[in-house]
Protein backbone atom coordinates (compact mmCIF):
# COMPACT_ATOMS: atom_id res chain seq x y z
CA UNK A 1 0.00 0.00 0.00
CA UNK A 2 1.49 3.32 -1.01
CA UNK A 3 0.99 6.38 1.15
CA UNK A 4 1.88 10.03 1.64
CA UNK A 5 1.57 12.41 4.57
CA UNK A 6 0.81 16.10 5.09
CA UNK A 7 1.32 17.92 8.38
CA UNK A 8 -0.84 20.98 8.97
CA UNK A 9 -0.56 23.54 11.73
CA UNK A 10 -3.48 25.83 10.89
CA UNK A 11 -6.35 26.42 8.47
CA UNK A 12 -4.35 28.51 5.95
CA UNK A 13 -3.71 26.33 2.94
CA UNK A 14 -4.00 23.11 4.97
CA UNK A 15 -7.13 21.68 3.39
CA UNK A 16 -5.97 22.73 -0.08
CA UNK A 17 -2.69 20.86 0.40
CA UNK A 18 -4.51 17.69 1.40
CA UNK A 19 -6.82 18.18 -1.59
CA UNK A 20 -3.82 18.36 -3.95
CA UNK A 21 -2.21 15.34 -2.33
CA UNK A 22 -5.37 13.29 -2.91
CA UNK A 23 -5.64 14.52 -6.52
CA UNK A 24 -2.07 13.51 -7.18
CA UNK A 25 -2.60 10.08 -5.68
CA UNK A 26 -5.80 9.61 -7.69
CA UNK A 27 -3.99 10.52 -10.91
CA UNK A 28 -1.04 8.28 -10.20
CA UNK A 29 -3.24 5.27 -9.44
CA UNK A 30 -5.93 6.12 -12.02
CA UNK A 31 -8.66 5.95 -9.42
CA UNK A 32 -12.31 6.41 -10.41
CA UNK A 33 -13.62 9.93 -9.90
CA UNK A 34 -16.53 8.88 -7.66
CA UNK A 35 -14.71 7.39 -4.64
CA UNK A 36 -12.13 10.17 -4.87
CA UNK A 37 -14.87 12.83 -4.79
CA UNK A 38 -16.38 11.13 -1.72
CA UNK A 39 -13.00 11.17 0.00
CA UNK A 40 -12.53 14.86 -0.91
CA UNK A 41 -15.86 15.74 0.69
CA UNK A 42 -15.14 13.61 3.78
CA UNK A 43 -11.70 15.18 4.31
CA UNK A 44 -13.11 18.68 3.85
CA UNK A 45 -15.70 17.96 6.55
CA UNK A 46 -13.22 16.36 8.96
CA UNK A 47 -10.50 19.01 8.59
CA UNK A 48 -12.83 22.01 8.68
CA UNK A 49 -14.35 20.59 11.89
CA UNK A 50 -10.91 20.22 13.45
CA UNK A 51 -10.02 23.81 12.55
CA UNK A 52 -13.36 25.18 13.73
CA UNK A 53 -13.62 23.29 17.03
CA UNK A 54 -10.26 21.70 17.82
CA UNK A 55 -8.30 24.91 17.19
CA UNK A 56 -10.85 27.07 19.03
CA UNK A 57 -8.77 26.97 22.24
CA UNK A 58 -6.20 29.25 20.56
CA UNK A 59 -3.30 26.88 21.31
CA UNK A 60 -0.91 25.65 18.61
CA UNK A 61 -1.90 22.25 17.21
CA UNK A 62 -0.68 19.81 14.62
CA UNK A 63 -2.84 17.74 12.30
CA UNK A 64 -1.32 14.88 10.36
CA UNK A 65 -3.13 13.43 7.34
CA UNK A 66 -1.87 10.19 5.84
CA UNK A 67 -3.45 9.01 2.59
CA UNK A 68 -2.90 5.53 1.29
CA UNK A 69 -4.23 3.50 -1.58
CA UNK A 70 -4.31 -0.26 -1.98
CA UNK A 71 -5.86 -2.54 -4.60
CA UNK A 72 -9.34 -2.29 -3.08
CA UNK A 73 -9.28 0.70 -0.79
CA UNK A 74 -8.56 4.39 -0.44
CA UNK A 75 -7.74 5.28 3.15
CA UNK A 76 -7.19 8.51 5.10
CA UNK A 77 -5.86 8.63 8.65
CA UNK A 78 -6.31 11.98 10.36
CA UNK A 79 -4.57 12.59 13.67
CA UNK A 80 -4.68 15.76 15.74
CA UNK A 81 -3.55 16.80 19.21
CA UNK A 82 -6.68 18.83 20.00
CA UNK A 83 -9.17 18.17 22.82
CA UNK A 84 -10.82 14.74 22.71
CA UNK A 85 -13.57 14.72 20.07
CA UNK A 86 -15.36 11.66 18.76
CA UNK A 87 -17.36 12.79 15.72
CA UNK A 88 -19.06 9.40 15.56
CA UNK A 89 -20.72 10.09 18.90
CA UNK A 90 -22.76 12.96 17.42
CA UNK A 91 -26.46 12.26 16.81
CA UNK A 92 -27.57 12.29 13.16
CA UNK A 93 -29.05 15.62 11.98
CA UNK A 94 -32.78 16.08 11.45
CA UNK A 95 -33.24 16.15 7.67
CA UNK A 96 -36.99 16.69 7.72
CA UNK A 97 -38.85 19.97 7.36
CA UNK A 98 -38.97 22.79 4.87
CA UNK A 99 -36.34 25.35 3.98
CA UNK A 100 -37.56 27.67 6.73
CA UNK A 101 -37.70 24.98 9.41
CA UNK A 102 -34.45 23.15 8.85
CA UNK A 103 -31.44 24.11 10.93
CA UNK A 104 -28.20 24.74 9.04
CA UNK A 105 -25.25 22.68 10.13
CA UNK A 106 -24.63 19.31 11.69
CA UNK A 107 -24.36 17.84 8.21
CA UNK A 108 -20.60 17.45 7.92
CA UNK A 109 -20.12 14.36 10.08
CA UNK A 110 -23.29 12.88 8.61
CA UNK A 111 -21.78 13.18 5.12
CA UNK A 112 -18.58 11.51 6.33
CA UNK A 113 -20.50 8.53 7.69
CA UNK A 114 -22.70 8.19 4.61
CA UNK A 115 -19.94 8.60 2.03
CA UNK A 116 -17.27 6.40 3.58
CA UNK A 117 -17.34 2.60 3.63
CA UNK A 118 -15.98 2.57 7.19
CA UNK A 119 -15.04 5.20 9.78
CA UNK A 120 -13.23 4.54 13.06
CA UNK A 121 -12.36 6.90 15.88
CA UNK A 122 -9.95 6.26 18.71
CA UNK A 123 -8.36 8.52 21.31
CA UNK A 124 -4.70 7.52 21.54
CA UNK A 125 -2.97 9.24 24.44
CA UNK A 126 -3.24 12.97 23.71
CA UNK A 127 -4.34 12.48 20.10
CA UNK A 128 -7.58 12.04 18.22
CA UNK A 129 -7.23 9.48 15.47
CA UNK A 130 -9.89 9.15 12.78
CA UNK A 131 -9.58 6.51 10.05
CA UNK A 132 -11.67 6.87 6.87
CA UNK A 133 -11.87 3.98 4.44
CA UNK A 134 -13.46 4.02 1.02
CA UNK A 135 -13.72 0.79 -0.96
CA UNK A 136 -12.79 1.36 -4.58
CA UNK A 137 -15.30 -1.11 -6.00
CA UNK A 138 -18.78 0.39 -6.37
CA UNK A 139 -20.71 -2.59 -4.95
CA UNK A 140 -18.55 -2.76 -1.81
CA UNK A 141 -18.71 1.01 -1.52
CA UNK A 142 -22.44 1.10 -0.93
CA UNK A 143 -22.50 -1.99 1.29
CA UNK A 144 -21.84 0.00 4.40
CA UNK A 145 -23.21 3.27 3.06
CA UNK A 146 -26.09 3.44 5.48
CA UNK A 147 -23.90 3.18 8.59
Amino acid sequence: MMSCVATITGPGDGIARVESMLDEMAREHRLDADPVADMHVALDEVLSNIFRYGFADGLPHRVEVRLSVGPAMLKAEVEDDCAPFDPLALPPPDLSGTLEERPIGGLGVFFVRKLMSAVRYVREGARNRLVLEKWLSESDGRANGTA
Partner: peptide, 17 residues
Protein backbone atom coordinates in the same frame (compact mmCIF):
# COMPACT_ATOMS: atom_id res chain seq x y z
CA UNK B 1 -19.68 20.77 -10.56
CA UNK B 2 -17.48 17.89 -9.35
CA UNK B 3 -18.69 17.81 -5.75
CA UNK B 4 -20.11 19.94 -2.96
CA UNK B 5 -19.47 19.59 0.78
CA UNK B 6 -21.60 20.80 3.69
CA UNK B 7 -19.96 24.26 3.54
CA UNK B 8 -21.35 24.62 0.01
CA UNK B 9 -24.80 23.43 1.01
CA UNK B 10 -24.75 26.04 3.75
CA UNK B 11 -24.06 28.78 1.17
CA UNK B 12 -26.89 27.54 -1.10
CA UNK B 13 -29.21 27.18 1.87
CA UNK B 14 -28.61 30.76 3.04
CA UNK B 15 -29.11 32.05 -0.51
CA UNK B 16 -32.40 30.15 -0.88
CA UNK B 17 -33.70 31.58 2.39
Amino acid sequence: LEYISSAGFRALFIAAK
